[in-house]
């Protein structure tokens, strides 16, 4: 107890610095857990969270038996999967490429240009997509001028995932690469010298030194990403989708949004949200233990 007090006094500035973070997580992540119980209740605003009657797993069985369960689950998983397969490696590749660029100015230019889109609000990005991809938009003018005809991209269910994942890569590739560039900088330069002495070319330097050097970072980020499989960026989907493309674009979070916020069934949407979180947690734990066993790097 005394040591704790002493520690508190000695490091008070550090504690002060961490206090807002702790408060943030406490207020916005731990406190709301109290409300999770309404997933098992017939929630009535007048009765309040505590006094609403219990109804067990009814909301869950309604959700699993609902007409849109299969489709929203499939869409969520597929969009997430595409995002991991194509979106996750993209910044790594960019970082590796940038690392090989000799000229500093060019490298800085590319870096700046690629991470600029990160600062554009998603509303604007979707607005740009609507303009560029419209029937009279620049993309269709280009394709029709070389005789490929026009496609109504935003009304075609088969294009939705490509557009979603593609625009995501465009927007986040530069920003995402920063952490890998930092990790590459942290690799001991003597390793490269030794490799050059041993006659390794740039390709094998990259494969045998750079990539293994940033592997722990990659794995940690991948594990974290897997813990978010069920959370796709629903704000962007809400902006992008129309009923014509529901078939491929309606995901669990947009469904929850329509049910919970627009229809006011808070209890039902909490149940769906809880289901989401549980799946995420399971995936995170699995990915972590797999990675610990396979490569030794893990979050805990």
């Amino acid at each position: 107890m005394r040591t704790l007090r002493k520690d508190l006094r000695r490091n008070r500035h550090i504690y002060m610095m961490i206090a807002p973070v702790v408060m943030y997580f406490g207020l916005f992540y731990y406190l709301p857990i109290y409300g999770v119980q309404i997933a098992f209740k017939q929630y009535s605003i007048m009765e309040g969270i505590w006094n609403s009657p219990w109804i067990g797993f009814k909301h869950f069985s309604d959700f699993f038996g609902g007409y849109y369960f299969d489709r929203t689950l499939r869409n969520t998983l597929l969009i997430s999967l595409y995002d991991i397969v194509f979106g996750f490696p993209a910044p790594i590749i960019l970082a590796l490429l940038l690392n090989e660029v000799g000229r500093k100015h060019f490298r800085n230019l590319v870096q700046t240009l690629t991470y600029m889109p990160h600062f554009i609000s998603v509303v604007v990005v979707v607005g740009m997509m609507f303009d560029f991809l419209a029937r009279g938009g620049i993309i269709n003018q280009l394709t029709s001028s070389i005789g490929l005809g026009t496609v109504s991209y935003l009304q075609s269910p088969e294009w939705f995932r490509t557009l979603y994942v593609g625009s995501g890569i465009w927007q986040q590739i530069g920003w995402g690469s920063i952490i890998y560039i930092a990790a590459i900088t942290g690799i001991d330069p003597t390793l490269y010298e030794a490799a050059r002495v041993d006659g390794a070319g740039r390709w094998s330097q990259m494969l045998r030194i750079t990539l293994p050097g940033i592997m722990p970072t990659i794995i940690i980020l991948l594990i974290l990403r897997l813990g978010n499989v069920m959370n796709v960026g629903y704000e962007k989907i809400l902006l992008m989708y129309t009923p014509v493309v529901y078939e491929t674009s309606d995901v669990i979070s947009t469904y929850v949004y329509r049910k919970g916020i627009l229809d006011g069934s808070f209890d039902y949407s909490s149940a769906v949200g809880l289901f989401n979180s549980v799946v995420n947690l399971v995936l995170l734990v699995c990915a972590n233990s797999l990675s610990r066993r396979a490569s030794g790097s893990s979050i805990w």
């Binding site: 309604d62 014509v244 309606d250 627009l262 039902y268």
Partner: peptide, 18 residues
């Protein structure tokens, strides 16, 4: 009623366009 109509409206909006 709300739960039925939520699904119904979503479905009709989609199918109407299709």
């Amino acid at each position: 009623f709300a739960s039925v109509m939520n699904d119904v409206n979503t479905y009709i909006a989609e199918m109407f366009d299709k």
